[in-house]
Amino acid sequence: MKKDLLGIADLSGEEIYRILDTADAMREIGERPIKKVPTLRGKTIVNLFYEPSTRTRTSFEIAEKRLSADTLNIAVASSSVQKGETLADTAMNLEAMAPDMIVLRHACSGACHLLARICRSRIINAGDGMHEHPTQALLDAFTIRQHKQRLAGLKIAIVGDLLHSRVLRSNVLLLTKLGAEVCVCGPPTLVPPGIERLGVRVSIAVDEAVAGADVIMMLRIQQERMRGAFVPSLREYFHVFGMTAERVKRAKPDVIIMHPGPMNRGVEIASDVADGPYSVILEQVANGVAVRMAVLYLLAGGVEEGSHAEAAA
């Protein structure tokens, strides 16, 4: 793998499968009574979060701890960002303390590219603006593969706020790379211009988008989108695009319903769907740890450290 994981755009299909296969091995560690292996002992990992995050940060931290890395968390509120330090300066200061990896979450697209240009440490993108969220797409793919045993040829509908979603971009890149048939669906106000050039079908009719789908992936719609006149109201949004049990019936009988969280119940997804039999939303969360362990392990140069690989497996 490359030095950094900045986005799915940088990964080949082969590398994606290697991560998913490694995650298979990592999942077993989480099922042991003592959920810890010495693989990343002596490695220092900084979780640098400029945006609030519960799921992703916790997931990375658990993954790091299960691999015995020394981890520290820097959250925006308690950092010197408040004192006007630039991202570049923060990066250079962290770099001076020689961490092995930096996991970055940032509100600006491309922030991790800036960090990667400055730092020798390996950078993992934990979500940058509206750009990418590669570990989310990897854990989504892992979850889909668990249920469907494959990715190629699957019909996948992604519904919601496409424009502002980094999860959308990473998933589109990953799923098209692995040969899935992807349809993205949302109001025209929330469709990124030119997105069809990534090899997806764009639909503005949710009933049509989910028809015959193997997988339905929901994206969150944020309250503040009404201010930019993207949608009139959350009530109307649910009426036109919300995932209801009625709509799910149009998909394949063994469809799975996914959501990267955090969910807005009754806005993009009805509670009975979120909590219903097709939902794999909590499995996604569980798989996030295994996938992030795999990414950390491979970026740390896992292949060369054969003995550790065996220890992990």
């Binding site: 755009a9 697209s109 750009h131 990124p192």
Partner: peptide, 19 residues
């Protein structure tokens, strides 16, 4: 223009930049 930072189109869309 809003808070756009790049030309609206394929490249801004894939890079997650406001168009």
């Amino acid at each position: 223009k809003g808070d756009g930072v790049a030309h609206e189109g394929f490249h801004a869309s894939t890079l997650g930049l406001r168009g």
